[in-house]
Computed example of a mutant assay.
Amino acid sequence: MRISYLRVSTADQTLASQRLAIEKALGEAPEREFVDEGVSGRVMQREGLDACLNALREHDSLHVYSLSRLGRSSAEVIRLVQELTRPVEQGGRGIILRSVTEALDSSTPTGRAFIGILAVVFEMEAELTRERTLAGLAAARRAGRVGGRKPSLTPRQKKQALSLYEQAGERPIDIADTLGVSERTVWRAIRDARATRAKVHGKEAMPV
């Protein structure tokens, strides 16, 4: 079965352009369509995506306008892509994934290679993010700026927490351990860092 998933982040956007691009690439309308309208990729619960993932069966094809429609962060997108496209005998779901923007078709050798490259690049970026963060924390300790658990984080540390969460795919509880604060403080730091980013850029940038 050919299934499409569409998502727009704000109420004043429409799904028409995504739908048209998918139908043009497919040559016809998909057999089923799931949507999340006016729902940010950062929202934890997305009913359309959840229903879409539940409907998919082995050998079905999932069509999206962009891979960024599938997750809240690069880490989540890559994990979901790998889970969907990995063969069932290897613990995956055996789904064919096609994305218009990235010209991705996971049923082809080129498409599978592209997914592998994405995973490798993400792992490199995640490791670099961890190294930079740990190096910064170590320098702060040497300078005597870190001692015991703190009730709050500096703007720089909040940005580090957001990078570890979105880019490195770290769990908030692990970030809390790294930064020497509570998990609740980490969630607050992520929220504050996103708010600051939204003010600077006018909107939250979508992950690749």
Rank of each mutant, 00 (worst) to 15 (best):
M1K: 11
R2M: 11
I3S: 03
L6R: 00
L6N: 07
R7S: 00
R7Q: 02
T10P: 02
D12Y: 01
S17F: 14
I22W: 02
E23P: 06
K24F: 06
A25W: 10
L26K: 09
G27F: 06
P30K: 08
R32D: 01
R32F: 09
E33V: 13
E33L: 12
V35C: 07
D36Q: 07
E37N: 14
E37R: 04
G38E: 05
V39D: 01
G41A: 05
M44W: 14
E47R: 03
L49D: 02
D50P: 03
A51R: 07
C52V: 11
C52E: 06
C52I: 08
N54L: 10
N54H: 14
R57C: 14
E58N: 12
L62A: 00
H63L: 14
V64S: 00
S66F: 08
L70D: 03
L70I: 05
G71K: 02
R72K: 08
S73P: 07
I78H: 03
R79C: 08
V81H: 00
E83S: 13
T85M: 11
R86K: 13
P87S: 01
P87F: 01
E89Q: 11
G91P: 01
R93D: 10
L97C: 01
R98T: 09
D105Q: 09
S106C: 11
T110S: 14
G111V: 11
R112I: 11
A113Y: 14
A113D: 11
A113F: 14
G116L: 09
I117E: 12
V120P: 08
F122S: 00
E125A: 03
E125N: 10
L128I: 12
L128T: 10
R130Q: 10
R132E: 03
R132M: 07
L134M: 15
L134H: 15
A135E: 12
A135K: 09
A135F: 03
G136E: 00
L137W: 12
A140S: 15
A140Q: 15
A140F: 00
A143H: 10
A143M: 11
G144Y: 08
G144M: 06
R145V: 04
G148Q: 09
R149D: 06
R149T: 12
R149S: 13
K150Q: 12
S152I: 07
L153G: 09
P155H: 05
P155L: 00
Q157Y: 11
Q157L: 06
K159E: 13
Q160C: 00
A161M: 05
A161L: 04
L164Q: 03
G169W: 09
G169F: 12
G169N: 02
E170T: 07
R171T: 02
P172Q: 08
P172E: 04
P172V: 05
I173Y: 03
D174P: 06
D174M: 10
D174L: 07
L179P: 02
L179Q: 12
G180H: 08
E183A: 15
T185S: 15
W187S: 00
R188T: 10
A189H: 00
A189S: 09
I190H: 02
R191W: 03
D192I: 01
D192Q: 15
T196R: 10
K199A: 14
V200E: 14
H201M: 15
K203N: 14
K203M: 13
M206K: 15
M206T: 13
